[in-house]
């Protein structure tokens, strides 16, 4: 099948593969150990999936903020985002 119309690039393909792997991993984790709603530093009770969503949404804004505010390499934003996602999933 010709996927040329989607104008794929290597970085975006890697990005989507990572997202797909993350969702697959969360599904396996959920089957092995079903999530329980918990209350952490976030103002509401959340499931593991909620916290991943908040983590990813936050990461998107961290990247945008980084781009708007600094000329430093975007890998810095990715590192901060990784910490943010881990923090939200563990303590959110």
């Amino acid at each position: 099948m010709d996927m040329g119309w989607m104008a794929w690039t290597a970085p975006t393909a890697i990005f989507f593969v990572c997202i797909a792997l993350m969702l697959a991993g969360m599904t396996v984790w959920e089957v092995l150990s079903p999530t329980v709603e918990a209350k952490g530093f976030l103002p509401m009770r959340t499931t593991r999936g909620d916290r991943l969503f908040i983590g990813l949404l936050g990461s998107a804004f961290i990247h945008l903020g980084w781009l708007a505010a600094t000329d430093v390499s975007l890998w810095g934003a990715s590192a901060v985002s990784l910490l943010w996602v881990a923090f939200v999933i563990r303590f959110g």
């Binding site: 989607m6 104008a7 794929w8 690039t9 975006t12």
Partner: peptide, 15 residues
């Protein structure tokens, strides 16, 4: 996903 792909490219035409 296609929009994400477009967002990192300069598009002059198909291909």
């Amino acid at each position: 996903m296609t929009v994400v792909n477009y967002s990192v490219q300069e598009i002059f035409g198909p291909g």
